Simulated assay, not measured.
Amino acid sequence: MKSFAPARLLSIVCTGTAAGILLLTGCSASGHEKSHTLTGDRESDSAKPSKDSPHVDPDPKIVNPLPSLRLPIQNYMESDELRHQASLAVTKLATACLESGGLHFRPGPSSYQEPPSLMAGRYGPVNLQQAKYGYHFMTAIQDVKAARVQPSKSELSRVNTCFSSAESTIPEPGQGDVINKIKDDGWVQAMSLPAVQASFLQWSKCMAAAGYDYSTPQAVMQEKSWDWKSDKPSAREISVATRDVTCKEESGTVEAWFSGESSLEKKAIGLHRQELDKTSAQLKAKATVVSDILSG
Rank of each mutant, 00 (worst) to 15 (best):
W257C: 01
I269F: 10
A195L: 05
T169Y: 00
V254P: 04
S259P: 00
S79M: 02
E155P: 11
K278G: 07
L271I: 07
Y214F: 15
S110E: 12
V126I: 09
P125M: 10
K61S: 10
K2Y: 13
Q197P: 02
E81S: 13
A94E: 08
L271W: 02
P72I: 03
H32K: 08
A131Y: 06
S239T: 11
S46Q: 13
S111G: 01
L283C: 05
V178T: 15
T91R: 01
Q222V: 04
G101I: 06
S53V: 04
I21Q: 08
T91G: 03
L69S: 05
G121R: 12
N180Y: 07
A281R: 14
S154P: 02
E81Y: 04
Q129P: 00
A5T: 14
C162M: 12
K267R: 09
S199Y: 03
T95C: 08
S3H: 13
A147L: 00
K267S: 12
L38I: 08
I179H: 06
G252W: 08
D177E: 05
H104C: 07
S295W: 04
E78F: 02
L66E: 04
S87C: 09
S192Y: 09
L283F: 02
P54I: 09
M221L: 15
K51R: 10
V220A: 15
F137E: 08
G16V: 14
K2I: 02
S30R: 10
T279E: 04
S165T: 14
K267G: 03
K48V: 11
S199P: 10
K145T: 10
Q218M: 10
T161Y: 09
S11Q: 07
L24T: 14
W203V: 03
A219F: 07
E172G: 00
A208D: 13
E167L: 06
A198Y: 01
E33R: 13
K61W: 03
I238R: 12
A29Y: 07
A219P: 02
P67N: 08
K224V: 14
L98I: 06
C97E: 08
N127H: 10
D231E: 13
R243L: 09
I62R: 01
Q274K: 11
D227C: 09
I182A: 10
A219R: 08
L276T: 05
S110V: 06
T246E: 15
D292T: 13
Q85P: 02
I269W: 06
G134M: 05
A29E: 06
V254H: 05
Q222Y: 11
K224H: 09
S230I: 04
S87Y: 07
E43P: 04
F105E: 10
K229L: 09
A120W: 10
E43M: 08
K92P: 01
W226Y: 15
G176D: 09
V254L: 02
I21M: 04
P49S: 02
A96I: 02
S100C: 05
L276S: 03
G270F: 10
T253F: 13
V220Y: 06
H32G: 00
G20W: 00
S215G: 15
V178P: 03
L264S: 02
P60K: 02
P173Q: 03
E167F: 05
L264Y: 06
R8D: 12
K51M: 13
E114D: 00
D45L: 14
I182S: 06
S215T: 11
